[in-house]
């Protein structure tokens, strides 16, 4: 169920003030863009806003799962801060849109998709599966894509807007590996958990590929490259490079059979 995102709270609102107390880096003024490019930019940042907003609810739900996994409170705190980051990213997208002259409400998802529970596995294993998928995989790919995008974004306004996002995404991409490093002794002791995680990765990698490697990548024109629009060809290449040269070796390093899982990734039912 979708609904327009409520408008920003005014400066006179105490909750609006409380929200603004955490300072974010200001953006330089935007350039002037041809109408067609401006329309593409607005559509892209509106899409990004809706996804940032949805991302937040996902990290929020990982909070209780980490509590159930009896994770140290610092871990759960950081997770919930990451959920807040995503809401602030959505607000940052709104700021970009306002600077482009687009103040119309963006449709966002009102219903919260329940986070996977992996019925039958322990609370610790459930949290770990979801942490690996969301941060070690999905958010790390996002980091790589942000870096690649920044490298070709010559427009100062969009360079600053994307940098602001990447600043938080670095932590989002690292969280899972920090968590993995922490739980390695448990993983080393439990061969069954490692085996099941390997099976889960087979499915996880295949789903991730479907979501993050555009099947029909269309190259991006130079005008769009300079303002930091996403390049599907680049996204596809980066997906494979990040998985093969960063995610998979890192998961192997903590004793998971990630290489096997990557090689045999499958959307079809995986036998556990």
């Amino acid at each position: 169920m979708k609904a327009p995102l409520p408008p920003p709270l005014p400066a006179t609102s105490p909750l609006g003030r409380a929200f603004r107390e955490r300072r974010v880096a200001p953006l330089p003024p935007p350039g002037t863009y041809p109408d067609a490019l401006r329309a593409r930019l607005c559509e892209a940042w509106r899409g990004r806003l809706a996804l940032e907003y949805r991302s937040s609810a996902l990290f929020m739900q990982l909070g209780p799962q980490l509590v159930e996994a009896h994770a140290p409170l610092e871990v759960t705190t950081v997770m919930l801060e990451m959920a807040q980051d995503e809401l602030r990213h959505a607000d940052g997208c709104r700021e970009v849109l306002a600077a482009l002259g687009d103040t119309s409400a963006v449709e966002v998802e009102r219903s919260v998709t329940p986070l996977a529970t992996h019925r039958g596995v322990s609370a610790e294993e459930r949290a770990l599966r979801n942490v690996i998928y969301t941060t070690c995989c999905s958010e790390l790919v996002a980091c790589a894509r942000f870096v690649a995008t920044l490298e070709r974004t010559t427009d100062p306004f969009f360079h600053a807007a994307i940098t602001r996002l990447l600043e938080d995404e670095r932590l989002h991409g690292q969280f899972g590996f920090q968590y993995l490093a922490m739980v390695t002794p448990w993983l080393e002791r439990d061969a069954e958990v490692r085996e099941r995680l390997g099976q889960y990765l087979r499915l996880g990698f295949a789903v991730l590929e479907r979501e993050l490697a555009p099947a029909h990548p269309r190259p991006l024109d130079d005008e769009a490259r300079a303002v930091g629009l996403e390049c599907p060809v680049e996204a596809r290449e980066l997906f494979y490079a990040t998985l093969e040269d960063a995610v998979v070796p890192a998961l192997e390093a903590v004793g998971l059979r990630a290489e096997q899982a990557w090689k045999h990734r499958a959307l079809a039912e995986v036998t556990t």
């Binding site: 980091c143 790589a144 870096v147 993995l180 980066l238 494979y240 490079a241 990040t242 040269d245 990557w262």
Partner: peptide
Amino acid sequence: MSKRSVQFARALIVASGIVGLGAGCGRGGV
């Protein structure tokens, strides 16, 4: 493709405390 972006991803992993990070599958993802 931006090689730096994958190097960046690997640097994040190393900074997270993961030891013994292998070179990867070497296809370069291209």
